[in-house]
Design a protein around this nucleic acid. Structure first.
Lengths: 127, 127
DNA sequence: CTCCATATTTAGATTAAATCTAAATATGGA
DNA sequence: TCCATATTTAGATTTAATCTAAATATGGAG
């Protein structure tokens, strides 16, 4: 399936990928485990973590470390995050919603490969 | 010491605060435990976590969740972070080193209280 | 300065997230 | 269809962080 790496597709992996592609938010590993088991029972915790690490290594998902919990982000296009101080939800903010940023001052010191903005505040429901 | 809250100053807390004020980087709880014990032996792990949570609640330090490890940041002025992809170090980037950002597009949806930029790449030593 | 109510520290147990192990199982190319 | 090899699984294990109850230290009141 994933050429050259000897990787095999399984029902468990298919379920996890399918769930990640259809969910709009940023689920935790535990939420993924629960959701997948409600459709395809008996997928074990290590399998969920194995698959998530496989997807992460292949660059198909990203980990989001915010608020002490690890979440998984199926959106791999460059984008930013909004985090609600009250309910903890993580929403995507597309890059074109934020103006370009210049890094002139620090460009000499670091080799900048990527940057990400984390916006915090209150979402519509929690205001 | 911290008025109105019934909090008491102890040698352990003093050591932890002193270390945080003099260290330039972003230590983990474990690193703080090691450093404090080398100066003032026999400070237990729960005491380190108690003190860090007390300081965090008082707004004197911030937690940094990056790369799967929790780090503590004694710099509470608004600033940004650089994270080295290779060695994992977290450096401060002061706000005035990055140009102002406008949030016009998303201002209608969220109540924005704060934003922080995470820059990733390679530090001088790791290039 | 001394006393003592109360906050703090401690060792050890406990929790929770994530990973490891070895055995059983499933995948997909030949 | 067969079978080498990757994957899954249950259960144990690791690690970070917290909880517990008993011992201790702090600092305001007298």
């Amino acid at each position: 399936m994933v050429e050259g790496y000897g990787l095999k597709m399984t029902p468990q992996r298919r379920s996890i990928i399918e769930f990640l592609q259809t969910c709009a938010n940023h689920p935790t590993a535990e939420e993924i485990l629960q959701a997948v088991n409600s459709h395809f029972p008996m997928t074990s915790r290590p399998t969920v973590y194995n698959t998530l690490n496989w997807l992460k290594g292949a660059g198909l998902i990203h980990e989001v470390h915010e608020g002490g919990t690890v979440r998984y982000d199926p959106n791999t296009s460059p984008h930013h995050h909004f985090i609600c101080r009250w309910c903890g939800r993580v929403d995507d903010i597309e890059s074109d919603q934020i103006e370009k940023i210049e890094f002139e001052e620090i460009a000499g010191h670091y080799k900048i490969e990527h940057f990400q903005i984390t916006v915090r505040g209150l979402c519509l429901q929690c205001q």
